[in-house]
Each structure stands twice: as structure tokens, then as C-alpha cells.
Amino acid sequence: MKIAVCIKAVPDTETKIKVAADNKNIDFADVRFITSPYDEFAIEEALKLKEKLGGETTVFSLGGLEAAEVLRDALARGMDNAVHLKDESFVNLDPLSVGKALAAAIKDGGFDAVFCGQQGVGGDNSQVPAILAELLALPQATLVVKLEITDSKFRAEREIEGAHEFVEGTLPAVFSAQKGLNEPRYPSIKGVMAARRKEIATKDAQALGLAGKIGKDNCKMIIREVTPPPARPQGRLIEGDADTQAKTLVELLRNEAQVI
């Protein structure tokens, strides 16, 4: 079983996000990067599958130094190989361009399963898994909270609005991990030590056959402006004992806010 996992380095979810001076991005100064939380479920599922069925796991990430850091962390958790997609032109890409770069890196690897987190926390596009499946011409199951694989067939449970649905299909396939799929492990000391000695392969646009095809000028979607969220109006405290508070609240919701 050959398994690929795609991960993304994102600002720690505890980070207070500020708009950059050019108003076109966020300010990355002092930002600590982590593996996008949903990608941790993707890594864990790949490791569990390998433990059960044997095989080889390879983790991919696109980006700068922060991508190398999360790849190292994935190796420490037990992934076998890491590939860093790194090129001067791989900056501020739209999801379609990211998908094209990942697909180019994955397509000839003979993978039986490709895992992604369902959403990169930050861009919050929730697009790359399906883009990747389309570009690799593979079936897919997204937002997966439970996965069974037997004899190159899969059964995936997806979380949808007010229900769960079950998708059955054949491998190779692309899966996106939703929270609930598993409990991600932390890297062990031994894993961290072993990961230090492992090599992270790098691939640039040339090696991926994408020279001149991916980059800022080839993006079909551009972020023109980034702004802070609209400020919330000043709120007020409702004083008094519980009886008074409850009566006042209901009165305000009814007559002032008019939401009930």
C-alpha cells in the first residue's frame, strides 16, 4: 500500500491575526507555524493504514521554510518520506495552482491512497482535495469521519448537514479528513531523533514540469485586499438578579434587537 499525504503549514490557531502593511495579506512576523489541524488527522490515518496493511507513506508540502518544518514534524510522527515543493514562484498561489503542483508531484508515484486535511486552516478554501482528485482523475471521498479499506475497496463515512452519509468506492482514491476521523499521535522522542537524520527531497517548478506555468501571474483568482472583520457594536451588561436579567434579556431580544 503506497500512501501520499498532503499537508500545509498554517499560523497557530491561537495566533492573533493582523493585516499586513500592504493590505493584501496577513502579517507573518512573529507568527508560529503548525501543521494545519485537519492535516494531522490525514497523517494519522495514513500511519494507521500502514500499520494495518504495510507499505510506504510519503508526505508532501508546498511552501517556504515553514513547509520544511511541518514535513520534519510529519517524519517525526512516523511518515517514511517527505517531499518539499519549493520554488520562488510558489508564493500566494490560488487553490487551483496549489492543486496543480501537488498533482504533478503525486501523479507518477503509484499511490493507492492520497490523504489531505479537509481544509487548510487560514485560507479556509476547502478545495485542494477535490481539485487534486480531479487532476489525478481519481474517485474521492471528502469530509471523512470514518474510513474502512479492504482489498482495494473503501467505505467512507462523511459528515453532512444533519446527517452522515456512506460512500463506497475503489482505490486508488483521494480522501479528505474531517475532525473525528482519529486521534492524532504526537511525535515520540525516538521519532524526533530519527526524523533529524532523514532527508527531505525538494522539487521545484522545473522538476515538476511546471516552469513558467504556476505563479502569481498564472493565478485566476487574486486577493485584492485583506481587511479586519467589521467591528462589533458596543454591547451592554444586563444587571440585576437572575429573574431581572432573564426578563430584561427577553424584552431586549424582542423589542430592541427584534430577533425573536
Binding site: 487551483l96 492543486g99 477535490a130 462523511r158
Partner: peptide, 23 residues
Amino acid sequence: HTSMAKDLMPRVATRLDAPLASD
């Protein structure tokens, strides 16, 4: 922007080589 759309729309947009702004 629903769980069906998250599954379907990026795939359709990619087939037509078009961008998608989600949510």
C-alpha cells in the same frame, strides 16, 4: 457553501480550469 458543494464545486471548477471562491 454546503458539504455537497465542498465535495463537488472544486472538482467541477477544475474540470473547466476555472477558479472558485468558497464560503
